[in-house]
């Protein structure tokens, strides 16, 4: 099976229903995308599929063959993603950091689709869990990234 990941075609050997998350982490060694719950509750595994924030822990790998997959490893290659990362650093958003790959990807997806989101837009898009409770810093970082767009 061939996947388009971060602009590169990668050949992978996995059962068709293997979650994309585990293909990324185990098959391709891309560990920036995290396993948190495995049931699309927490969002730590968020990647972009054709620009859309997608919880890769419940996404069968065969369902994204031929689609453009973007992971945290390539987020800074995208101008919006780069802005999001800079805002994350400026806001000192992460604590333990485990959820933040997914948070950054969710924010990047939001700002690519809605460059100037309202607070309601942010609340609707930024639903990933953070056990460290960095939610206020995350919202501030999203607003800052949007303001610089």
């Amino acid at each position: 099976m061939e996947l388009n990941i971060n602009g590169t075609t990668r050949s992978v050997e996995a059962e068709a229903d293997t979650p994309l998350l585990w293909v990324l982490r185990d098959e391709l060694g891309m560990t920036g995308t995290k396993y948190g719950c495995g049931v699309a509750q927490c969002g730590a595994c968020t990647v972009l599929v054709d620009g859309q924030a997608t919880r890769s822990c419940v996404t069968p790998v065969e369902s994204v063959a031929g689609m453009a997959i973007t992971t945290i490893e390539a987020v800074e290659q995208d101008p919006v993603g780069r802005r999001v990362v800079e805002a994350w650093v400026a806001a000192q958003a992460p604590q333990c950091g485990y959820c933040q790959s997914g948070q950054v990807m969710a924010a990047t997806s939001l700002l690519k689709q809605t460059p100037h989101p309202s607070d309601e837009d942010i609340a609707a898009a930024m639903t990933n869990l953070c056990r460290c409770g960095t939610y206020n810093a995350i919202a501030a970082a999203v607003r800052q990234a949007a303001a610089q767009g």
Partner: peptide
């Protein structure tokens, strides 16, 4: 003082036990 680990944690480069190979 700015935290030392924030950029790595904002770009997926921070490594946890679960990432060990």
């Amino acid at each position: 003082v700015a935290r030392l680990d924030v950029r790595a944690k904002s770009t997926g480069r921070a490594m946890y036990s679960i990432d060990v190979t």
